[in-house]
């Protein structure tokens, strides 16, 4: 388990990184935290000719409070986001979700850009981006463009990123004050990739009715799934057990899961409904707990 021969270039700027990628015509690969890439190199499942290390790029390490959204630089570590008070206030779903990513030691190194670009269908961050309609900012030889999460994630480990583009930032809309969030993740062991995870952010109206709900699922399709029908069903309703149950069924209905050794598609669909119901119960005031601490 040792990586195949490769070249290594430490990028001095985003432009430099993009230039190296362009010169290598698809055989170059960006190295961020390395928590997914280095094991793939060691297994020789990935054999790029050159690695472009973004590790030295301070310009990609920032969390910025913008009007209406926060912008997170691609090289910000998951752990930094998880413990940021700015993020906790502005996007409360994010830290709750990131706590399910591996372990602290993994999150110390893994970056938000890396997790987004890697696009593992069971990963938490892409599902949150999808739930919150975040934008992914990418930069290529001809400049930057912004891609909505719905369009960015295209398939299993597949994104809208061109071979010579890099992710430079995430723009995550701020949640309305008082938004209630919850995550229900089913993994075989603590810290494992989810078999299925459901993420919810719910705004309540003046009389306790559901004003708006945002729900996404990881592990239940080749891409993160947004449960639009469930969200519609919930909007304007009182959070009664029957409503939550119906919404949970809709969440499961939106998935197109796959088989693997940890569970069949059928199993994933079944537990999606269970997790979705529990997630909504956890998020909503009728349940005993009000946040997924």
């Amino acid at each position: 388990m040792k990586p195949a021969p490769l070249d290594y270039i430490r990028a001095t700027s985003v432009a430099h990184a993009v230039q190296v990628l362009a010169e290598n015509d698809g055989d170059g690969k960006v190295l961020a935290g390395g928590q997914s890439l280095v094991p793939l190199l060691a297994m020789r499942l990935s054999q790029p000719t050159v690695l472009v290390d973004l590790g030295g790029l301070g310009e990609l390490s920032y969390i910025r409070d913008e009007s209406g959204h926060v912008e997170i630089g691609a090289m910000v570590r998951a752990r930094t986001v998880e413990i940021s008070s700015l993020i906790a206030d502005a996007v409360p779903l994010l830290p709750v979700a990131l706590r399910h990513v591996g372990h602290v030691t993994i999150r110390n190194r893994g970056t938000v850009g890396g997790s987004t670009a890697h696009a593992d269908p069971a990963a938490e961050l892409p599902a949150v981006l999808r739930a919150l309609d975040a934008d992914v900012v990418v930069t290529g030889p001809s400049g930057s463009r912004t891609i909505g999460a719905a369009d960015f994630f295209q398939g299993f480990l597949t994104t809208a990123l061109a071979p010579d583009e890099i992710v430079t930032a995430l723009r995550v809309p701020k949640s309305a004050p008082g938004t209630r969030v919850a995550v229900q993740e089913f993994a075989r062991r603590h810290g494992d990739f989810a078999i299925v995870a459901v993420f919810a952010a719910v705004e309540l109206g003046a009389s306790g009715e559901i004003a708006a709900a945002r729900i996404a699922v990881a592990g239940a399709d080749q891409v993160p799934v947004r449960a639009a029908a469930a969200e519609e069903l919930l909007a304007g309703q009182d959070p009664s057990p029957a409503v939550l149950r119906a919404a949970a069924a809709e969440v499961a209905g939106a998935t197109r899961p796959f088989d693997d050794i940890h569970g069949t598609a059928d199993y994933r669909k079944k537990i999606t409904a269970v997790l979705a119901r529990r997630c909504l119960e956890q998020a909503l005031p009728t349940a005993e707990r009000s946040s997924a601490a």
């Binding site: 075989r188 062991r189 603590h190 810290g191 494992d192 990739f193 050794i261 940890h262």
Partner: peptide, 16 residues
Amino acid sequence: PLTTTFMDYLIPTASE
């Protein structure tokens, strides 16, 4: 064999 990593062969951790 489909279980050739510690991601797939599940040795319990302290949490389990």
